[in-house]
């Protein structure tokens, strides 16, 4: 697995092929848009989507934490998919995750999909934060469009999710779509980490930097 070392905010972030961003300086792992329990929501809503993606996302996340030796986890919104996503699988998974982290080191910057589950966080020692939330050289958001302060002299870097960014590349009549991180105007938007998440293809524009996830690597494109 080969990530991309991004030098930013006078420190380094490792953009990991799983979709996470690791801040080595403080052993912190940033992820966004897990949408845990999404397939459960669909099944309860009458659409036969097979189970498996929630556990898969959880396994990948725990694997990431262990491989990178993270001691703090920050979720930039949409940890769960909906209020009706809660089932045994989800609860057990979150409990497993919570055990891995020292108490107080599991932060959630609430996203639009998390709103119905507010009463649950306590059970898993998840600390709820509201955007914009400062953390060292970063300002944490879920949705940059609605949560970023309009006029600000802040030189800190914004970290956000919500978008589920992807880019399309064309070659010899073939097109491929790749999940990516995007960096623009002092804001880094993370790829959606969850296994059962869609992605939004971004229009390529000047001044924007993209870090595409291609199999086991993260490649920088400008």
């Amino acid at each position: 697995m080969k990530g991309y070392r991004l030098h930013i905010a006078e420190t380094t972030l490792l953009l990991h092929p799983s979709g996470a961003a690791f801040w080595k300086e403080e052993s912190t792992l940033f992820v966004a848009d897990l949408h845990l329990g999404k397939s459960t929501t669909f099944r309860r809503g009458g659409i036969p989507i097979p189970a498996g993606s929630t556990t898969c996302t959880m396994d990948r996340l725990i694997d990431c934490i262990e491989t990178l030796n993270a001691s703090r986890l920050v979720v930039l919104g949409d940890l769960v998919h909906a209020r009706c996503s809660w089932d045994k699988e989800l609860q057990e998974g979150l409990a497993r995750l919570s055990e891995r982290l020292p108490k107080g080191n599991f932060l959630l910057v609430e996203g639009n999909h998390d709103l119905g589950s507010r009463s649950r966080w306590e059970d898993f020692s998840i600390e709820r934060q509201v955007a914009p939330h400062p953390l060292g050289p970063w300002i944490l958001l879920h949705d940059e469009l609605t949560e970023r302060p309009q006029a600000s002299n802040d030189h800190r870097v914004y970290l956000a999710g919500h978008v589920h960014p992807a880019i399309k590349l064309r070659r010899f009549g073939e097109t491929i779509r790749l999940r990516c991180f995007s960096l623009y105007n002092n804001c880094l938007t993370l790829a959606a980490f969850g296994s059962f998440t869609g992605a939004k293809t971004l229009d390529l524009s000047l001044g924007q930097q993209y870090f595409a996830i291609v199999d086991d690597e993260v490649i920088s494109l400008t």
């Binding site: 669909f42 989507i49 189970a51 498996g52 993606s53 898969c56 999909h113 059962f196």
Partner: peptide, 17 residues
């Protein structure tokens, strides 16, 4: 909450069923 593209559903099926 029940919106998903058919591409995504195809991937999920291929992976888990």
């Amino acid at each position: 909450h029940l919106q998903a593209s058919s591409d995504l559903i195809f991937d999920v099926f291929q992976e888990y069923d």
